[in-house]
Design a protein around this nucleic acid. Sequence first.
RNA 1: AGAUCCGUAGCUCAGCCUGGUUAGAGCACUACACUGAUAAUGUAGGGGUCAGCAGUUCAAAUCUGCUCGGGUCUACCA
Length: 1116
Amino acid sequence: MSVKYTEYQQLNLPSISEEILAKWKKENSFEKSVQLREGKTPFVFYEGPPSANGMPGIHHVISRTLKDLVCRYKTMQGFQVKRKGGWDTHGLPIELGVEKELGITKEDIGVKISVEDYNKKCREVVMRFKDKWDDITQKMGYWVDLNAPYVTFENNYIETLWWCLSELYKKGYLYESVSIQPYSPAAGTGLSSHELNQPGTYKDVKDTSAVVMFKAIKSEKISLKSAKGDVFFLAWTTTPWTLPSNLGLTVGPNIDYVLVKTFNPYTHLPINVILAKNLLGKYFKAEGENGDFDTYSAETKLIPWAVFAELKGSELEGMAYEQLLPFEANTLEKIQELTPGAQPFRVITGDFVTTEDGTGIVHTAPAFGADDFRVGKKNNLGILTLVDKQGKFIDGVGEFSGRYVKNYKDEKDYVDVNVDISVKLKKENRAFKVEKYEHNYPHCWRTDKPIIYYPLDAWFIKTTAVRDRMVELNKTINWKPASTGTGRFGNWLENMVDWNLSRSRFWGTPLPIWRTEDGEEEKCIGSVQELNNEIKKAAEVLGGETNKHYLHDGILDLHKPYVDEITLVSDSGKPMKRVPDLIDVWFDSGAMPYAQWHFPFENKETFEQNFPADFIAEGVDQTRGWFYTLHALGVLLFDSVAYKTVVSNGLVLDKNGNKMSKRLGNVVDPFDTINSFGADATRWYLITNASPWDSLKFDSEGIREAQRKFFGTLYNTYQFFALYANVDGFAFKENYIPVKDRPEIDQWILSSLNTLIKDATRYFDEYEPTQAGRAIEDFVDEHLSNWYVRLCRRRFWKGEYEHDKICAYQTLYECLEVLSQLMAPVAPFFADWLFNNLNAVSGRFTVASVHHSDFPRADASVIDTDLEKRMQLAQDTSSLILSLRKKVNIKVRQPLQKVFIPALDSAMAERIQQVADIIKAETNIKEVDILAADNDFIRKKAKANFKTLGKRLGGKMKWAAEQIAGFDNTLINRVMEEPYTLNPEDAAKGGEPIIITGEDLEVSTDAIPGYEVAVKGQLTVALDIVITDDLKMEGDAREFVNRVQNIRKESDFNLTDRIDVQVLENAGLQPSLIQYKDYICAEILADSLAFLPVLNAGTEIEVNDVTLKVNILKKV
RNA sequence: AGAUCCGUAGCUCAGCCUGGUUAGAGCACUACACUGAUAAUGUAGGGGUCAGCAGUUCAAAUCUGCUCGGGUCUACCA
């Protein structure tokens, strides 16, 4: 008739996962969990789209666990949490993968393979591991809606991106400009930062470096007039080929510079040079300072030098100098022709200048360095690009024209142009030091040739225009951890530059801008319909073959090459072609709040309800990725944050703290992990081991520990409950017994439980799942299993099914039930399993899954902090007594008469009194004798309370502490009663009196003579270890019970089987057994205990060094 | 190079915000005990210059500064 709690052979977490997963599938538990909250407040979550062209790794499991647990928690808190999944499908990694697979390079696209076929291939590859992802998603228990995911390559998605771009265009935020980018002359292509970060691109190479001399033009303004002869700025470069393009010198405004009189080591001519003071030692030998200038000749080894002026960089600003290498192509006229109004050849200031290397004066060629470009633009230096895209000097650079700046073509007899430039400068008295310099320089990963930084056209979003607003709104975002928001992200925002959108690739979202050949007119398209209209319009105006394939159905695929085949017409009637660029994939993902709903073309209302997100979470590596692009677009388009809370989780490292990489072979396969340990233990470990934002040293031993320690203990507790509840038929059918009517121990565990609910709720609300998990763990281990169940064991298997027993069942049941709910967000399978096992019998909930239930609410009326403290006292006391027993080697089964516990005050006495029974039972002691506060039996010890006294006493603290340590009982008692002056003599002489009160003392007890004593903090116990004959007999009886119980167990008797016991007569134990016969029989469920002179059958047992023979007979 | 996180027992981590005089857990190790939850549990033991240096303070693991080591992100250097 009655349903039983399911009992198990042993804990098998993976099979629990499987079983529950099947149940979820069958019952559509996820969909149901969302449906059940229909009409409730939405909690908006954005899923950062993974790319399915790579295998999922263990690091995906941690961030998804985090996302999942928050969503599950919020659902249980009554919110409706829809979780639309998504896939990131564009981007360089995909293209590179395809190229590798096809054995082609970027240059082959459009030649060996059509763009159409290439993109087709990309589209195939992009979902290659979707099955694996779906698999891990399910197995790890990640609830996300994959039925209608957003996919970034779909037309609708791209259409929204176009809408976003056109909005930005309308606001004037989208513009084209030159920027300095890594460029590979050998490959003839720009490189993305991603390509630059491929392993092995940075190599140590030796290059010709030169410290060159720029001749200053003396002016009235600067006090260099005092220098006799020419004055030169020293500047260092590792790329002498950039020197003809030099347009400025940059100094640090706060750096100290010196003017030094010396000789040029190559020409031996007297010169004056300017360089950073810190770097003097690098170029001048100390012994040469103030040397003999008059006798200097070419043969002199030690070059004399002398400092005769010192000045700040800011004082140098504005000084002019002679052009170093004038040629036809870099005359002032040419420069001003290229940049009207440019004013080159001046000293400017820049923050990026350091005195780590070089001279503290930076040769600035705006075309060939990002910093140079920036300061050049700011200071109107103009720009010279005297090197073409093949990497050779253009015409008009004298003898260097046509020469490659590096050996890009593998010429056998290549002569380094950098060396020739240096030689020329040496001859012209313009080189101060030329040497080989070894440094780390980036190389093209494809051609292995050094890259250069080169000005390239690119499209930008003017994020700097809203920088202040982005900073301001960022302050309203709840960052976990906060430091990422203020530090890494905040700093990034402060120093933000415009967003470079352009990518010269094939598989991605095309930039929807069409332009006339002369660049005079352009159009930015914001929707498919607009494009189709324009297609027709262009066909009509331009006629002929224009757009003939697109007239009938309009455009069907918004990718290359189709968009590029389309010609539009300008307002003045000229044909317009699309600019060739694709956009940065980060724009794809950053626009997902809008594009996932195909906003504004559809789902306007849905979008409005789902923006901004309440919560997102990804790895810290997304700080400048997704977190940034989401934020930027939110601010640019809607003047709003895109998310209110963001959790950034740290990296997963291997157990030795190394980054996981395929190369090192230390990657952890998430499938293996979950298959062998189950998703719950894995998730629990990932969450509780370290805060999500700390990097995690992943060690499967830790999962094993979580499995054994936490899940094992909880499982055991359930098993224990099920075992006896099934015997007694407990199904929670009786009325709920008011907590106040239950035994104190029940009140205590329920109080702890409600405190736990309160804490866990707070932690989850604060996005501190680690703290929540640890609190739950502590409760299960310390409170529930190792104290409540241990102390209450007998209540479950002894006695009749009545009040006390029902209290015990109800209490333990409630603990297990609430635990299943508290742990549900983190360990969803086990929690549901536990919940269902309980609910299948009791039917207390109507919902079919713990994930459909409401998160427990703490009942403040049940929380009794005093009781919790008291119990802690009982635990500590018991622990002390047990340690004393151990010390004197008296086993717990041997009863002892008495323990003394000194109470320092009446409150403490009261508390001990209330838990005395528990202590007695736990430690098998007959009496707890509480010594009142004012007894003289014990000696008290006082220690100064540094916290209260320190502030008042300051320097006299040490002295006072010594005084207080010397107090005796009388003095301590006196201070406890009334204020006491510590320094009466001093005070009498007019010194500051030191008055102390009871608060300023920390009183504890000293040893009690004649007893075994143990102390912990303020708590002292003194154990009476005398074993009287009576106690000995009782100990024997208990020991005997234990032996019989073992025999019962070994013989596989049922818990309820009754027995008859026969014992061979013996002198040693018989008196004890007779005296405690009733007790013994009750314990071992014996109907008789008989002493026989002869015993043929039976077992030899040993009880306290006495051997005796017993025979146990099961009653039939 | 800049930013940020981290550094406490052999290992994984608390404690740090709010300074207080014996720095805690768990795992592992050793020994002993317990055994009707038993692939569990208890007790005891060894194991720490709280990365280093300096400062503030009566008092620093805790606050400040610097240095070193590790991770990550960004940048890439004349």
